[in-house]
């Protein structure tokens, strides 16, 4: 589904990705983990074409993505910071993204699920961070695409919404979607991820199941496992 080969990216003198190889087959939930600055977001953005790699290749659905944009029709992306044009109303924003993607979207269910009905006519500038994140989620999940990329999906969410989000992810997973998720909430990873990808200093340190990672580090808990890897280095 997504195949990354020998990916390099440098920002100025700061080398962020140093030869990442990663193959993500269809279906399942992949959590991209790693300490701060390990290149998680850069990797995801490279897949989306937001960041242009210096070297290496990325293929999505067997097609190289360099210089392309059409392939993004197959990807739903949730950006890390949900900041929208302030003077547009929620309803208009949803309509606009639908208009831009030229695709039918199932926003109604999602709006109900996150309890956004009272905010539909509010301007985005007047929403709280959590509410904005909910809008962000609606925008991401309302389309039916085979790949879903989530960058810190849990930030700012209240417990109820968190549960709703998890249900949503599970439901989409049942539908055969492929997820790529970055997060710092290890509990969240433990609950939903099928596979973890562990990035360390710009390279893939580990790919495989969660239990595999625990085994490898000899820890009982993901948080400890990660701490162990980080301190080991």
């Amino acid at each position: 589904m997504i195949r990354i080969e020998n990916l390099y990216k440098r920002f100025g003198r700061n080398e962020v990705l140093k030869g990442v190889d990663l193959n993500i087959p269809e279906g399942g939930i992949y959590a991209v983990l790693g300490p701060n600055g390990s290149g998680k977001t850069t990797l995801i953005k490279s897949v989306l074409g937001l960041v242009i790699p210096n070297k290496g290749s990325i293929k999505v659905l067997d097609r190289p993505v360099k210089g392309q944009w059409k392939y993004r029709e197959e990807i739903n992306y949730l950006p890390q910071i949900a900041n929208f044009p302030g003077n547009i109303r929620v309803k208009e924003l949803i309509g606009m993204i639908k208009d831009l993607r030229q695709k039918a979207g199932d926003e109604g269910t999602l709006i109900r699920m996150f309890g956004l009905e009272p905010f539909l006519d509010k301007k985005l500038a007047n929403l709280s961070g959590g509410t904005k994140q909910k809008v962000n989620l609606v925008l991401t999940f309302m389309f039916d695409s085979p790949v879903i990329v989530l960058d810190e999906p849990t930030s700012g969410l209240d417990p109820a919404s968190m549960i709703a989000l998890k249900d949503l992810i599970q439901k989409e997973k049942q539908a055969g979607k492929t997820f790529l998720i970055t997060t710092h909430i290890m509990q969240f990873v433990e609950e939903i991820a099928d596979q973890v990808v562990y990035l360390l200093e710009g390279q893939v340190y580990y790919t495989g199941t969660l239990s595999g990672l625990l085994e490898k580090t000899g820890q009982k808990d993901l948080e400890y496992a990660i701490a162990a890897i980080t301190s080991e280095k």
């Binding site: 937001l50 993004r72 925008l139």
Partner: peptide, 16 residues
């Protein structure tokens, strides 16, 4: 000011 919005758009199937 529209940087984040731009990022949102960039993730959509649109030409840069």
């Amino acid at each position: 000011n529209s940087r984040e919005f731009t990022e949102l758009l960039l993730a959509q199937p649109l030409k840069r």
